[in-house]
């Protein structure tokens, strides 16, 4: 009895320490974001931010890039992961390996390689659309994992054959069977991509595009309290995306599972 009590106290202490480790910087940043000099506190940093057109432009740019990255990622990955699960299970180690490459290739090396590889067309490499290429690669470990887990929970072979035996073609299978049963996985992949793209700095900075993360960095060099406010807002967005991943992950469909 004593042992159980002391171990639960131990857990509480560890959890509290970890909680403080995460919360203290946030609380400090939050308090600092309200500081208006001397002993005055208020919303001046937030009001100032809201009136900056550049902030909104960078935010919309990052959001647009996030949406485009989601579309490109899903268009490439959903059929690829589906095919791997259905027809080429032996390729799974290769898929797993490729999916974690973004972890081991430094972003600066990746951006240098991509710049050398893509030399045109101008409407693509000369615009912020080019960022989608590194972003798709950057999001790959997370999106692949989300789709892989989602598809593993379905008996794809049986679902595919059931759909075909009822007269369904590939389009019917994809849009009436596969996608509706992968909504949690797709939502998870999309929200993770949003979180990644909203916080990505290196690619955008090197390629000279003013995304949300680049703007946060710029503000940090010019106005400390506004930077703190913006950091908190950015954190809130990422946190909401992660919460979305957790919530949608609970609704993952499974096949069979008789009552």
């Amino acid at each position: 009895m004593m042992n159980r009590q002391s171990s639960s106290w131990g857990r509480l202490v560890v959890l509290s320490l970890v909680g403080l480790y995460f919360l203290l910087p946030l609380v400090a940043t939050g308090v600092f974001s309200f500081w208006e000099g001397g002993d005055r506190y208020g919303l001046r940093a937030y009001v100032s931010l809201v009136h900056q057109d550049e902030l909104w432009e960078s935010l919309w740019l990052s959001l647009r890039l996030a949406l485009e990255t989601i579309v490109v990622t899903l268009v490439i990955l959903v059929p690829a992961v589906f095919w791997m699960h259905l027809k080429a299970k032996s390729f799974k180690p290769l898929f797993d390996f490729v999916s974690i490459l973004p972890f081991v290739v430094p972003p600066i090396a990746l951006v240098a390689g991509l710049t050398a590889l893509y030399t045109g067309p101008a409407w693509f490499v000369g615009t912020s659309n080019f960022l989608i290429v590194p972003y798709v690669i950057l999001a790959l470990p997370y999106t692949y994992r989300a789709l892989d887990v989602g598809m593993s929970s379905l008996d794809l072979k049986t679902l595919t054959e059931a759909s075909q035996s009822l007269g369904g073609g590939w389009g019917t299978l994809f849009f009436r069977v596969l996608i509706p049963n992968l909504t949690s996985a797709l939502a998870g992949a999309a929200l993770l991509t949003i979180a990644i793209v909203m916080g990505e700095f290196t690619f955008a900075n090197v390629l000279l595009f003013n995304t949300f993360a680049v703007y946060i960095n710029y503000i940090g060099q010019t106005s400390a309290t506004e930077a703190a406010a913006l950091t908190l807002l950015s954190f809130l967005m990422t946190w909401l995306a992660m919460l979305g991943v957790l919530v949608t992950g609970r609704g993952q469909a499974t096949l069979g599972g008789a009552r």
């Binding site: 008996d155 059931a162 075909q164 035996s165 009822l166 009436r176 049963n181 469909a253």
Partner: peptide, 20 residues
């Protein structure tokens, strides 16, 4: 003929109902 053009009904060993 591909499977979806054969007009053959099939019941599978595994549970095959569409979960959604």
């Amino acid at each position: 003929l591909p499977a979806n053009r054969r007009n053959i009904g099939m019941v599978f060993q595994a549970y095959s109902l569409f979960p959604n």
